[in-house]
Computed example of a mutant assay.
Amino acid sequence: MAKYLTLDELDEALTHLRSEYRVLAPAYEHFGGRFAHTDNLVYQDIEQAADIVWQEKSHFSPNEVVLPVTQTLFHFHGDEIIQPSDNIKPILLFARSCDIHAFERLDHMYLKNGKNRDWYYDRLRKKVKIVLLECESSFENCFCVSMGTNKTDNYAAAVRFDDNGMAITIKDPSLESYFDLLGADQDFEPSFVTSNPVKVRTPDQVCDDPDKIRRILTGNPVWQEYDKRCIGCGRCTTSCPTCTCYSVFDISYNTEARIGERRRQQASCMTGNFTDMAGGHSFREKTGDRLRYRALHKVNDYKARQGTDHMCVGCGRCDDRCPHYISFSNIINKMSDVVESAMNSVALEQQHD
């Protein structure tokens, strides 16, 4: 099914959809930005078509739908453990191609990375239907084409907005009834961005051995620059659609600590206390070392374990959000240059031998 809906017709469709789904899409959070009297573009519940901001890239990713910032794992009352309620409404989520690929990375980490599926992630993920939000053109700092995440066919429906309404093509038959009596039939297939102003090459394009890449880059002086530039604020990780780190802690409701709940909360490998251990031990105390750890995870180590894809999807939000204008795309290119230079040096030495 493919149709075109006017804004009024789209509002009517949203009314019907919201009776069964939470509808989430990019929308402005008034005065929620990092500067005074600025708005944040975040994923929020949508009530009408005018709320959806389709012309811009969201400041934060939609991964909070399946990875809440703070999540209750269970309640405890004396010796009794109580599961949190599973009364979760299905979710219809408008997401761009790079973010859909990001969900595939999260699925691997939480559902396929070991012998046990993460129950908390799994029950939320099963509730989500994704609507592809077409990108009219590349946004600033995006490098999705270089990362191979600019195209996808993994969606229940796809939409293209304009000032007067929305074209939609529906792949999931369960969504068709919401649009049966609305709109006009129209042929529509989503198009995809085919080039970005920002381009990267990843280290595996110059060396096919991830262990060698890791050895070359660990301890390399290229990271020393970021000991001064990076302040370890973690803004890059809070905006990243594929960051999965969290910490676990207990909240007590009484002084005897017999009643309360256990929570997990999003954490950042870029903050100073991330590697703190009992006994006062800590690893990667310099911000350059933390950035190296993060960068290797995103464009080397994850693929070495998973086999086909890098964890980074090239959305560029980390570049958008960094208060010190550190560009992750530049870091990836620097990594590749360092690896290439090291490989060329070895090859030259072997020729002389």
Rank of each mutant, 00 (worst) to 15 (best):
K3Y: 06
L7V: 10
D8H: 13
L10N: 04
Y21Q: 03
L24T: 05
P26F: 03
Y28W: 14
Y28K: 08
Y28Q: 13
E29S: 11
G32Y: 07
R34W: 07
F35Y: 14
V42T: 11
E47N: 14
Q48G: 12
A49L: 11
D51A: 06
Q55M: 06
E56H: 10
E56T: 04
K57C: 01
E64A: 02
V65K: 05
V66S: 00
V66R: 02
V69K: 06
Q71E: 14
F74I: 05
E80P: 05
I81H: 08
I82H: 09
S85G: 15
P90Y: 05
L92S: 02
L93N: 00
L93D: 01
F94G: 00
R96M: 05
A102M: 04
F103I: 01
E104Q: 07
E104K: 12
G114T: 05
R117I: 11
K126F: 10
K126G: 13
K127G: 13
V128E: 00
K129R: 03
L132R: 01
C135N: 05
E136H: 02
S138M: 08
C144N: 06
S146Q: 09
M147H: 00
N150F: 03
D153S: 12
Y155Q: 04
A156Q: 04
A157S: 07
F161T: 03
I170K: 01
I170C: 10
K171Y: 07
K171E: 14
P173D: 02
L181K: 15
Q186T: 12
F188H: 09
N196T: 06
V198I: 11
V198W: 03
V198F: 06
K199Q: 13
D204N: 13
C207E: 11
D211P: 04
I216K: 00
T218C: 14
G219F: 01
P221G: 13
E225T: 10
I231E: 12
G232E: 01
G232K: 02
S239D: 13
P241C: 14
P241F: 07
T242D: 09
T242E: 10
C245Y: 01
S247L: 08
F249A: 07
I251Y: 05
S252D: 15
Y253K: 08
I259N: 15
R262D: 01
R264F: 11
A267Q: 11
S268H: 02
T271R: 08
T271Y: 14
G279C: 08
S282M: 10
R290C: 03
R290D: 01
L291Y: 02
H297K: 06
K298G: 03
V299K: 01
N300F: 03
D301W: 07
D301S: 07
Y302Q: 01
R305P: 15
C312S: 03
R317V: 04
C318P: 01
D319Y: 01
C322Q: 03
Y325K: 06
F328Q: 09
N330W: 10
N330P: 10
N330C: 13
I331T: 00
D337E: 10
D337C: 05
V338D: 02
E340M: 04
E349G: 13
Q350R: 13
Q351A: 10
D353Q: 12
